[in-house]
């Protein structure tokens, strides 16, 4: 089995009476960016921690390359991970942090400098982490994950605290890493945040799987709609009724579901209806995401 395939099999975890993760099964493959999505508290972090051997599953298995994480000879060189709650000693420099963890993933000091440059922390590496912004800490976490140039990356909410420029940079960087053939798993509680980055999505809610597919298949669930503004709402309503379209007021105009802009435009033209705006609204993934995760609650 490919060393970089992450697999979760009938995974479950109970904390006392709370079922944090329940009967969860999915796989994450190399060469793609996979979004691991779910509302806060849906069990994402617990699942990631079980994949990394930090939390012991109550049921099922979480495997890296067909084996539990801890069974690999140098696990930190196989999977680079940046988890949300991972801390840094405020009195240690960024470089000091990396060099402390370097021996156990088999890299030297020069590589530590290299990854600092790679994540845009070059000169800040000699400063103490206590003075870092949240965004800089995110970058240092990413640098730590990249230390051993691992074939798989597992990043928990990596966009948190990054400025818009940083988010664009991260997006390109993750795409680049996946294009090199790596497995990239990125968790987020906001689909919009990773919508332009991911190829595949795994959606969980209340600890259970609610959806796993490519992003394109998820988008297909959303359908299309057309937004129309007209000075003659009554005329538009009559047109929709005549054609059997579902229309609803939205913003300052009307939203017509499951019909594209060209069809609405042609019909309005034929009916002599004046239009001021006619726009196809792309698939609203966030709506689908909320529907999927909401249905589970």
């Amino acid at each position: 089995m490919d060393a970089a395939v992450l697999a979760v099999e009938a995974l479950g975890k109970s904390f006392g009476p709370v079922r944090a993760v329940d009967d969860l099964t999915f796989e994450v493959h190399p060469g793609r960016v996979t979004g691991f999505l779910g509302p806060n508290g849906s069990g994402k972090t617990t699942t990631l921690r079980m994949l990394l051997g930090l939390v012991r599953p109550t049921d099922g298995r979480a495997l890296v390359g067909g084996r539990p994480y801890g069974d690999h000879p140098v696990p930190g060189a196989l999977v680079g991970a940046a988890l949300e709650a991972t801390g840094f000693h405020p009195g240690r420099t960024g470089l000091g942090h990396l060099t402390a963890y370097a021996p156990q993933v088999g890299v030297d000091r020069a590589r530590c400098r290299e990854v600092l440059e790679l994540v845009g922390l070059g000169p800040a590496g000699d400063r103490k982490v206590g003075g870092y912004s949240l965004g800089m800490r995110q970058r240092l976490g990413l640098a730590t994950a990249l230390l051993a140039d691992p074939p798989a990356l597992l990043l928990d909410e990596p966009a948190n605290g990054l400025d818009p420029e940083g988010i664009v940079w991260l997006r390109g960087f993750l795409r680049h890493l996946a294009a090199e053939g790596r497995t990239v798993l990125v968790s987020s509680h906001v689909l919009a945040e990773v919508q332009h980055t991911v190829d595949d999505v795994v959606v969980i809610a209340k600890g259970r799987l609610v959806h796993a597919s490519s992003l394109a298949e998820l988008a297909a669930l959303a359908g299309v709609s057309t937004y129309v503004e007209t000075p003659d709402p009554a005329g538009l309503a009559a047109l929709c009724a005549q054609r059997g379209w579902v229309a609803a007021p939205r913003d300052r105009g009307t939203q017509v579901d499951d019909v594209d802009a060209a069809t609405v435009g042609a019909a309005a033209h034929a009916a002599g209806l004046e239009l001021h705006q006619l726009t196809t609204r792309g698939a609203d993934l966030e709506d689908v995401f909320l529907r999927l995760t909401g249905a589970a609650s």
């Binding site: 990394l52 930090l54 801890g70 696990p75 991970a81 991972t86 840094f88 000693h89």
Partner: peptide
């Protein structure tokens, strides 16, 4: 105790799960 206080224990166990 510093590893627990500053939550670096996670990273320490990622590079050495034993």
């Amino acid at each position: 105790t510093t590893e627990v206080r500053h939550r670096t224990l996670t990273q320490s166990l990622l590079v050495e799960p034993r």
